[in-house]
């Protein structure tokens, strides 16, 4: 399956891009996607464990299942308000 990963704030600075398509073997969870991201973007790997993940605009834990076409967002600590 392919998921589209969005990067924001510091995460986008680490990766040098705002989005990237990642191929995962089916079935896959958020944890699998985190591992793939750390492998593809070594600059992101150090901070990634402290970042949240959202799938299709909802926060998702590491055991959440992913589906082909999902939008996965890498969310560094937020600063709004």
């Amino acid at each position: 399956m392919i998921v589209n990963v969005l990067f924001f704030a510091q995460a986008a600075e680490f990766t040098g891009c705002q989005w990237h398509e990642i191929e995962l073997s089916t079935p896959a969870t958020v944890a699998d996607c985190r591992r793939a991201l750390a492998g593809t973007f070594p600059q992101l790997a150090g901070e990634l464990p402290s970042y949240l993940i959202a799938v299709n605009c909802d926060y998702a834990g590491d055991d959440a299942d992913l589906r082909h076409g999902d939008e996965v967002a890498v969310i560094p600590p937020v600063g709004g308000g």
Binding site: F8, A9, Q10, P49, S50, L52, A54, D58, Y59, A60, G61, A64, A73, I75, P76, P77, V78, G79, G80, G81
Partner: peptide, 30 residues
């Protein structure tokens, strides 16, 4: 809420400033 803030200094340098309330690794709604 997924909003991020940069502070821009008089010399133009920008730094990311996260809120203090968020504990690292905590998933707010799951």
């Amino acid at each position: 809420v997924p909003i991020w803030k940069q502070e821009i200094a008089p010399d133009g340098a920008a730094i990311w400033v996260p809120n203090q309330l968020q504990t690292q690794g905590a998933a707010p709604s799951c």
